[in-house]
Structures are given as structure tokens and as C-alpha cells.
Design a protein around this nucleic acid. Structure first.
Lengths: 192, 192
DNA sequence: TTTGTTCTTGACCATGCGGTCAAGAAAGTG
DNA sequence: CACTTTCTTGACCGCATGGTCAAGAACAAA
């Protein structure tokens, strides 16, 4: 009972995510959100509790979206090294598109360790990324294309870190070529 | 002629740098600065033009300081691999101390590519870091401790990227051990 | 000592922002 | 049709913030 909502909550959340992604949490004001979504302030507050809660929902959405893209990519039957390259392309396509970078990383640096829930989200993203990369690396090791001088989880943590770095690099305004080259070097160093 | 300034401009700049480092540009308000420096608003505006100009000065100071620390470290006669480890320790000691991260990287992500001067500062930092790492790597290659499968500049760009990643990691609230382990893996992968 | 210049101080201003209020509109229920 | 409930809308509030003003204080040159 009661009046039915006139806007699509899911769609609105997606749009808000885009805005947060582009501008960050602090810099995004409610007017930005109402303007791009077309949803008035009070309606936004009706669907999501407040700015921070809305942001956390957007953050989760982003993580789920990113991880499922990675998972899809890791589940095809391409050679491991090609999968890694594809991961790199995905990640840099992401970041270079509009130089928005990765929302998780942007958020990690904006919040530092000041917000427990944000922290959890960031750590989950890191862990999931390592997990997926690890499965690719294991196959790479099985096929003698990746060194065994380190364990798969170690290499996965390392690669995740390399990706983090290149996402920052990409957002720092350097060319896509440069960030791509860095990733290529890193992948090449994994050879046995 | 005219009244002499009662506060030490250089010291004040250092203090402001610390505040910006800890809180970022946006989040730092003038009251934060006047409170920690003890210098009143108008006096601050007398010495530095405005908040942004003050920030840019603090950013330059940070970069110069960091680079000269790196340079000092690279100029001793320790074995190259030990120098790299020392670089890692320096960088992580930096970031883990109070989880402030690296001011340059924090700034790069906060500003994106919206501010020309900030961008220049960030790119200079990256370039200088690569230059110094490259000199260490060259010596490592001469002593057969670092692979020659890539050129020194390539490896330097890669290592700079790894460091970027681990600085983000450190600021993301993970333990110092974890960020340290990632660096160790990366260094170890440089072996011939 | 006078004068001109710069620094200091605290009050002041305009604005942007997150969040709330109250009144009206639409829907379900009896 | 009443009645209740939820959504919508626009006005409103309190507060923080970057920046400015004006008056007084300290110093150097004349």
C-alpha cells in the first residue's frame, strides 16, 4: 500500500555509482546526483538512507560488477598468459576510458582507514582479485609458462599490486601506452 | 620596510605539508592549518597566496624531500639488491607510519587530471623515481644480479609501478608485513 | 619623530552543502 | 468513497568553509 515509486532504484544506483566513480565521495554533492539521475533529493533519501549509505551501495555494486567481469574473463579456455593480458586490457580500458581510475582504489585513498565498512569493501576487492588471478597463474604454472620460484598466491598478490599501480598511473594522466607497457613488462617477468 | 614577519615561513610550510599529507587537499580546511601552525589566516594568506598555492608549495617540498632521500640512498656503495630493499623500506616506512600514504599519489588520485600544475608535479615525481631506480638497476645488471631481459628504464618503470601499488596497499589499511611481502616478491622476480 | 609600508588579528561575508520539513499526490484497502 | 500509507516536490535550516575587510601594531627610511 502507499504510493508506488516512480523511478528505477537499480538504475539510479548505477547512475550514482558513475558519478561517484568520476568525482569521488566528498566532491560529489547531492545536486550532482539529483541532476544526473533526475531523482529529487527526498526521493533519493527515501530509497537510500543518506549520502554515505548510497555511496556504500554504489561501492558494493562496483566491486561485484568488476569481479564478475574478471571471473568471466578467467573462465574461458584461452591460454593463461593471454588471459592475463586480457585482464590488463580490461583494467586499463576501465581506467583510461575517462581517466576515472578504479573506484575501489580511489575510495581506498580518499578514506584511508577512517571508515570500517569502506575498508572491508576494499579488502574484499583485493582478496577476490588475488583469488581469480591465482587460478590463472596456477594454470600458467602447470603449462610451464609461469615461474615456480614463487607460489601462485604470492604471484597473484604481486600481480594485483602491479595492477593497482598501473590503475593509479592511468589516473595520473599518463598515456594508455605507458600504463600498458608497464603491465607488459610485469607479465613478461613472470616467465620461468 | 614594514613590519617583520613573526613566524618562520619554511617551518610553517613544513607543518602545512604534514597536514595536507594526512588529510588531503579538500578535507583540510584553513582552520586545520591555522591550528597546527599557530599562524592566523590572514598571515597565511600574506605568505602564500591562497589554499591552492600553499598546497602546491607543500607538494613541491614533499617531492624534493622524497627524491633527495631516494638519491641519498642510491648513492651509497651498498649492493644494488640491498639498495632496492632499502628503497622499499623507506617507502613503506613512510606510508605505514601513520597510514598517510604518499602525498604525491594521494594527490594524483584526488585531483585526477583536473589540475595542470598538480599533474606536472606528479609526473616529475614519477620520472625522478624511475631515473634513480634505473641507476640502481644498471648496477644490478652489471653485477649479474638483475635480469637483462628488459632494459634498465623498463625495469625502473615497472618497479616504480610496483612501489605505487604497495603505497596504495599500505594506505588501504593492510599490515606492513603484507605490503612488505609484495615488494619482496617483486624484487625477487628481477633476478636473472 | 613622522611617514609609509607590511604584518597581525578578529570580525565578517557569501556560498555550497547535507539533511529535514510540510504539504500535496498517488496508490492500496475497507 | 473514505482512510491510511508511501512517494514527490520545493522550500527551508544550520553549519562549515574559503576568502576578505578594516583597524591596529611593528618596523624602516626620512
Amino acid at each position: 500500500m502507499g504510493r508506488t515509486r516512480e523511478f528505477d532504484v537499480e538504475r539510479t544506483l548505477h547512475q550514482c555509482m558513475e558519478v561517484f566513480w568520476e568525482k569521488g565521495f566528498q566532491t560529489t554533492c547531492l545536486d550532482d546526483l539529483t541532476e544526473t539521475t533526475g531523482v529529487k533529493k527526498q526521493s533519493l533519501y527515501g530509497a537510500f538512507e543518506n549520502k554515505r549509505a548510497l555511496f556504500l551501495k554504489a561501492l558494493s555494486l562496483y566491486r561485484e560488477q568488476s569481479i564478475s567481469q574478471l571471473e568471466e574473463l578467467a573462465s574461458d579456455e584461452a591460454p593463461p598468459m593471454e588471459q592475463l593480458q586480457a585482464v590488463g586490457n580490461l583494467v586499463l580500458g576501465y581506467t583510461n576510458e575517462n581517466c576515472k581510475g578504479c573506484l575501489i582504489i580511489n575510495t581506498a585513498l580518499e578514506f584511508g582507514s577512517s571508515d570500517e565498512e569502506v575498508l572491508r569493501e576494499v579488502e574484499t576487492m583485493y582478496a577476490e582479485t588475488e583469488r581469480i588471478l591465482s587460478t590463472i597463474i596456477v594454470r600458467g604454472q602447470d603449462q610451464q609458462q609461469i615461474t615456480r620460484r614463487h607460489t601462485a598466491p604470492e604471484l597473484a598478490a604481486h600481480l594485483t599490486n602491479v595492477i593497482r599501480g598501473s590503475q593509479v598511473l592511468a589516473k595520473s594522466g599518463v598515456s594508455a601506452d605507458q600504463s600498458g607497457a608497464v603491465l607488459k613488462t610485469a607479465f613478461s617477468l613472470l616467465a620461468p
